[in-house]
């Protein structure tokens, strides 16, 4: 199945694209697969500290994805 991923963070800014992942893949699995293909990575701990939205709703990293899902990973930061 195909899912669409977008990363918004200071270290993974402007990364967006689609990934073909196996049926039943979780968010974490899709993220790892996509980033590996881009030569990047996001540790599990950092992923769990991020806000993950699937189709604009907040979910956890172990959420199982569906075909066509839109995944956004927002890295949290402290700002002024």
């Amino acid at each position: 199945m195909t899912v669409h991923l977008k990363f918004r963070s200071m270290d993974l800014e402007a990364m967006t694209g689609a990934a073909d992942v196996p049926n039943g893949a979780t968010v974490e699995q899709a993220v790892n697969q996509y980033l590996a293909a881009q030569g990047a990575e996001l540790s599990g701990e950092n992923l769990r500290q991020s806000m993950i939205l699937v189709n604009r709703m907040a979910v956890r990293a172990d959420q199982v994805l569906q075909d066509g899902d839109e995944v956004m990973v927002l890295r949290s930061v402290e700002a002024g």
Binding site: R8, S9, M10, M51, L53, M72, L74, S76, V77, A79
Partner: peptide, 24 residues
């Protein structure tokens, strides 16, 4: 390092869009 580079480049508002979407 990424944090320092980010706020150095664009100030505290570098996180603005993320914050609007995340609930921050």
């Amino acid at each position: 390092a990424a944090y320092a580079a980010g706020i150095g480049a664009h100030g505290t508002g570098v996180t603005y869009v993320n914050s609007c979407l995340s609930g921050d």
